[in-house]
Amino acid sequence: MVKDVLIEKREIMYRDALNEALKEEMARDDKVFIMGEGIAQRGGSYKVTVGLLEQFGKKRVFDTPISENGFTGAGIGAALTGMRPVVEILFIDFTMLILDQLINQAAKFRFMSGDTASVPLVLRTQGGVGNGLAAQHSQSLEALFYHIPGLKVVMPSTPYDAKGLLKAAIRCDDPVIFIEHKLLYMNKGEVPGGEYIIPLGQADIKRTGTDLTIIAWSGMVPKVMQAAEILAKEGISAEVVDPRSLVPLDKMTIINSVKKTEHVLIVQEAARRGGVGSDISSIIQEEAFDYIDSPVKILGGLNTPCPFNLNLEKVVIPQVEDIIRAAKEVIYAV
């Protein structure tokens, strides 16, 4: 949207884009503060919070003990009483320890209070398969949060999106779970120097095409883009739609693309069963059934925990070749 406000052209890393968003929002609003494990002096495991302590001081940037449920709850309490906390949970796998605070508490207050309370909290975390991080540090768990009314779910795939969406998330008056991907932090992309915001609920067409729509988010987007490149050489024109936020979901952009291409492939890193892909597929069948030419295909992770062994790790989540194969299946309806 505000892409035309480009002041200078520059490329920065995903992690630096997030860092800029935090700095800008903390400078703009002194109610924004950030806490998490090793985020202050150390600047976070993925260097997203580097320099924040120096700039904003230890009242607004501080390390927590390893007490996820407790400090997330404390974030929620602060949010309920006027602050705008950004709470970091190192791995999405560890959000399993904070489910009561997030789901029974934060997600419910606006509703239960008859719209007299709100929880403007951002829970930053990261998920996905890395390199040999095994079953308890590799999960993609967005579907769990997607399922909960009252939570927003954001999953940026590029530095540009990461910055604009994190700023929107911090300004959002409701709890947002902001899920980064561990393999994206060092990816570079164009990010304008000036201030911009990407509203939640706006999908982005990462590549335009005419033959099929591939829907993907987070760590799968770069893989899908690679696949689309190869497909193009083989004469198949894929349109890549990145919803960017899963809640709210930009159905319009998805449906419009589907109407144009009449073929749909959804690619998700998360285990196939009960994933967000299934829900998007059902939305497409409900709202664009007459337009689609072949069954909506979902390429997901295998329904299994992630193995430690590196070769097997590759087997459990979609790879570029798998995406290409699946795209052809959709096009040729084989």
Partner: peptide
């Protein structure tokens, strides 16, 4: 011990009462 599926952080020997390393603190 875990056929290479667990790795360093999940090493265990349930057959000999070692209930395992753990990736989740506590």
């Amino acid at each position: 011990y875990c056929k290479g599926l667990g790795g360093s952080m999940h090493i265990a020997d349930y057959t000999k009462n070692n209930l395992g390393a753990n990736g989740i603190v506590g």
